[in-house]
């Protein structure tokens, strides 16, 4: 009798231990996001406890997540990409001039932008690989180049406007969906891209090679990873995702010269909240997307509290430091 209770107690302990282990392994980004979202729900039940409100939340959050996934690829490889904010600026401002208010030109404009994105990523990758310039400096130079060239092309002030068919991806919703009520196109774009990059990053050799380069470049090289090729491909993927993110940003934002400014920093912050190590070797597509959602939720929370913009900067800065310190210290304890 006593032995059975003892063994069952042991079993319960074991099960509890397993659950606890599982709980401990949950990346901190999920509880943090949930916490902020629940607070939002209490403050504004209509906005964040209804499907309608939640879907509205995802419209601006999705573009940031797309940018963050691209940035993650480069960060996981041990690099940086500071040019993605300028790419967003380029996509919005140059498209609005290219379109010349003609909806017919939407597809060519998008294709041209993707083409330029590929070119930007190619140059970034080649400069880092063959001229051996650190990506931080390469993409900083690219940021200045892309922003300068864009403003030169449009003549310093926004020209024309973005046609509705160009903007639909970032702006419109699929209406009358059962349960979800409405789904923003942007979220669908994110889900599709997220799935593609989840498979690419977590289920193919490419992803493993990126992580290997970020972890130990020399070791990766010696074990046969074609470092230069992977680097170039990764920079191209990052730039193309920045173009696609830019199209989504252009959908809900206005056309002005400050659009896209600082988005590279937001994307990097989203990655780090999502558990990416700057310096490389770690990354997860889903966590990073939730890192972006968390950042957006923080911004919404501060708006919800009705704080003026300057205070939101202070609190956003503090929260970013706190979140990263929390995940840094907790991952250290695990070791």
């Amino acid at each position: 009798m006593t032995t059975t209770t003892a063994s069952s107690a042991k079993e319960i302990n074991q099960i509890l231990g397993k659950i606890w282990n599982g709980v401990r392994r949950i990346p901190p980004v999920f509880p943090i996001f949930l916490l902020i979202f629940i607070i939002l729900g209490f403050l504004n039940p209509k906005g964040y406890q209804t499907m309608n409100g939640i879907m509205t939340f995802f419209r601006p959050a999705a573009p940031l997540a797309v940018l963050a996934i691209g940035e993650m690829l480069v960060l996981a490889m041990g690099g940086f990409d500071l040019s993605i904010g300028a790419i967003v600026t380029m996509v919005v401002l140059a498209s609005s001039k290219l379109l010349a208010n003609d909806p017919e030109k939407a597809l060519p404009a998008i294709l041209i932008m993707i083409g330029i994105g590929i070119l930007i990523g190619l140059i970034n990758g080649l400069v880092v690989s063959f001229l051996k310039v650190p990506s931080f400096i390469t993409t900083l130079g690219m940021m200045l180049l892309v922003r300068g060239a864009t403003l030169y092309y449009i003549g310093g002030a926004p020209q024309g406007y973005l046609t509705d068919n160009w903007r639909q991806f970032g702006r419109n919703y699929i209406q009358d969906v059962p349960f979800f009520v409405k789904i923003p196109y942007a979220l669908i774009v994110l889900l599709v891209l997220g799935l593609i990059f989840y498979i690419l990053f977590h289920r193919t050799n490419y992803g493993k090679q990126v992580l290997a380069i970020g972890d130990n470049m020399r070791a990766a090289q010696l074990s046969g990873v074609r470092v230069k090729l992977i680097r170039v491909v990764t920079h191209i993927l990052c730039s193309v995702l920045a173009v696609l993110g830019g199209i989504l940003v252009g959908g809900y934002g206005g056309v002005n010269v400050t659009i896209g400014e600082g988005m590279e920093m937001q994307a990097i912050a989203a990655c780090v909240i999502g558990g990416v190590l700057l310096g490389g070797g770690k990354g997860n597509v889903i966590n990073v997307a939730f890192g972006a959602f968390t950042l957006q939720a923080i911004v919404n929370l501060l708006n919800q509290l009705g704080l003026p913009k300057p205070y939101t900067d202070v609190i956003q800065g503090s929260i970013i430091i706190f979140v990263v310190a929390y995940s840094a210290l907790s991952s250290q304890r695990k070791r």
Binding site: M77, G78, G79, V127, V128, S129, F130, L131, K132, V133, P134, S135, I137, T138, L140, G141, M142, M143, L144, L145, V146, R147, G148, A149, L151, Y152, G156, I213, G214, M217, Q221, V227, K228, G280
Partner: peptide, 29 residues
């Protein structure tokens, strides 16, 4: 033109760093 200035500045920053990194045997990240 001030915008072209920014373009040239970007290119020159990269070239300046490349002028000595290109000879290094170590790959950059």
């Amino acid at each position: 033109n001030p915008y072209l200035k920014s373009v040239f500045q970007g290119v020159i920053i990269v070239l300046a760093v490349a002028s000595y990194t290109i000879r290094s045997k170590k790959d950059a990240a």
